[in-house]
């Protein structure tokens, strides 16, 4: 379950409106350590717990507190000395002292100190009540702030993931463009060289409208074949290029399918593994995947005379 769905359940759970499967889903999610949802839960529960504070406070029966203190089991005992013990110790200490006539000035000092303590106590009561209220408000503010920080952190992670994705896409685009640029520069070098040779390809029946050019450069060992007005082929057929030697041996030199929009193609024929004299280049239609020897009629052909 996503955090947004869990947080919807957290709101229900905070006011007690979630059913058991919902509570279990929240519990499982929190056990997985989702900090954002843990903070959302703390915040939602703190907000819900404010509701009763808006109720008109009730006044318990006066005897209720006495009844509570009376029924408390004695398992827990206070570590702090009781007032009675303190007073008893005080009395015992006083009994051991010799009797003296009370002087006036110690009483004045005692009264002054008592007054000072009373003032401090009153100020302290006021400031402690205020501190407690501030603390409650701070708890809520801190929980809110933590929730906000967690949400920001998640947003930053999401943004970071999106940016990484965009950067990768841009890198792929750059690689593609670099490859195209490299090909274009090689083609420019090939075409601009005085060693460039070229031959025309003519369409034969039933593709008389088709035509093409074949270009090659011995020094750069580059070949290019361009063809135009080529009809589109069904999926189970392909065009295949053939290099034909002086002795009439036909060697497969690559497959292609024309661009369906422009009905044209520019491809790099595969050169034979051994140096041979080539006299012709031809194009046939073959079954998809190509053939070792031409099975279809020659549809595009041109004369070349080149040593490969």
């Amino acid at each position: 379950m996503q955090c947004t769905e869990i947080q919807e359940l957290i709101f229900l759970d905070a006011v007690g409106a979630a059913d058991e499967p919902m509570r279990s889903a929240v519990s499982r999610h929190l056990q997985d350590g989702c900090i954002e949802c843990q903070l959302a839960q703390t915040e939602a529960k703190a907000t819900a717990a404010m509701l009763p504070i808006g109720l008109a406070p009730a006044t318990p029966t006066p005897a209720l507190k006495a009844s509570l203190l009376e029924r408390l089991p004695a398992q827990r005992t206070s570590a702090t000395p009781t007032q009675a013990n303190v007073e008893a110790k005080g009395h015992r200490a006083a009994d051991n002292r010799p009797a003296r006539r009370p002087a006036l000035w110690p009483m004045v000092i005692t009264l002054a100190m008592a007054a000072a303590f009373a003032i401090v106590a009153i100020l302290s009561i006021d400031s402690n009540a205020s501190l407690a209220k501030d603390r409650q408000a701070e708890m809520l503010a801190v929980a809110t702030l933590k929730g906000s920080l967690a949400r920001d952190s998640i947003n930053i992670h999401k943004l970071s993931a999106t940016m990484t994705h965009l950067v990768l896409a841009q890198q792929q685009k750059i690689s593609f463009l670099q490859a195209r640029l490299k090909n274009a520069m090689a083609l420019e070098k090939m075409v601009g060289s005085p060693a460039l040779e070229m031959a025309s390809l003519q369409g034969l029946a039933p593709m008389r409208a088709a035509w093409g050019r074949v270009m090659w450069n011995h020094k750069l060992k580059m070949w290019k074949l361009c063809a135009f007005n080529l009809p589109a082929l069904p999926a189970d057929k392909t065009y295949e290029v053939w290099m034909i030697t002086a002795k009439g041996k036909k060697m497969p030199a690559g497959l292609f399918k024309p661009d369906p929009k422009t009905r044209s193609i520019m491809m790099t024929p595969t050169l034979p593994p051994h140096r041979q004299i080539m006299t012709e280049i031809a194009v046939t239609i073959e079954p998809a995947g190509g053939s070792l020897q031409p099975t279809g009629a020659v549809l595009l052909a041109g004369r070349i005379n080149s040593s490969l």
Binding site: P52, L55, T59, P60, L69, R76, S78, A79, T80
Partner: peptide, 21 residues
């Protein structure tokens, strides 16, 4: 830590709102 006075203090502070609830 087992301090009864602390319980008494909490009761004094919050019994009103808790009883209302």
């Amino acid at each position: 830590q087992g301090d009864r006075d602390a319980l008494s203090a909490l009761y004094d502070k919050y019994s009103g709102v808790l009883l209302a609830l």
